[in-house]
Design a protein around this nucleic acid. Sequence first.
DNA 1: ACTGCATATACTATTGGGCGAATATGCCCT
DNA 2: AGGGCATATTCGCCCAATAGTATATGCAGT
Lengths: 128, 128
Amino acid sequence: MDVIRIYKCLCDEQRLRILNLLRLGPLCVCHLMEILGEEQVKVSKQLRYMKELGIVEGERWAQWMVYRLAEEDNPLLRENLRCLQDVAGERLAFGEDLRKRAEVMERVGMEGSACAAALTGKTGAGCD
Amino acid sequence: MDVIRIYKCLCDEQRLRILNLLRLGPLCVCHLMEILGEEQVKVSKQLRYMKELGIVEGERWAQWMVYRLAEEDNPLLRENLRCLQDVAGERLAFGEDLRKRAEVMERVGMEGSACAAALTGKTGAGCD
DNA sequence: ACTGCATATACTATTGGGCGAATATGCCCT
DNA sequence: AGGGCATATTCGCCCAATAGTATATGCAGT
């Protein structure tokens, strides 16, 4: 995973927002859509793009695909995502995204949904 | 100067090498060409691209254009360039480039060339 | 004014990525 | 088998970026 790939990944706002979210843990596509307020196609395509670059990994849980940052820990990527928190927290929708993420995670946790299953590894029923 | 611009700048190997060189101080196009072993057109275009993104600045010294990192200090850019030293030193031609840069700088310094003038602010005669 | 050097721009072709709409796939449930 | 949900893929279009070639500009010395 060379540096060029990482920067190619980082040079798009949608992707930055997704990575910023995945930084805190895996998410399925439907939640990413909800948090970002974006259409499924777009989100899915960006995830595919990043997957091909080796930045994220996807795992299927029943009907859901759960994406996470790639296992291989990359210092450059990690540092940039950390740094972006401070540098671009307001400019990009980072803060807002994380707030929404918290909402979603809480709701999912409370309702023991299938997506929660995907995220936690247990089995449940019904996304949201 | 938002973060996307910076990453757009960083996602090309040529540009990374140029930025890595400029990090140590201004250089004129002819020296960049020599160090990178690249054609004039390419180097010039990349510099223009980065200039439009506000990452570098160019100043004319007689027939030579001297480029430097933009005045405005950007933490994100600075950190990345610093980090790349460690992370990609061998993979990209960074180390080799810096070695060549040292050669060029020494030669220029010894011969008191016009390019040296451009780089140091004094007047001289003859590039190389 | 002419020449030569350093650099920039214009032109064309090609590639890569983003987007929208439609369609396909995979999985679950009945 | 069929229906429904989540996600992925395909296609056609547009725009940004890269590359190569040729040409133009700016400046200095004669």
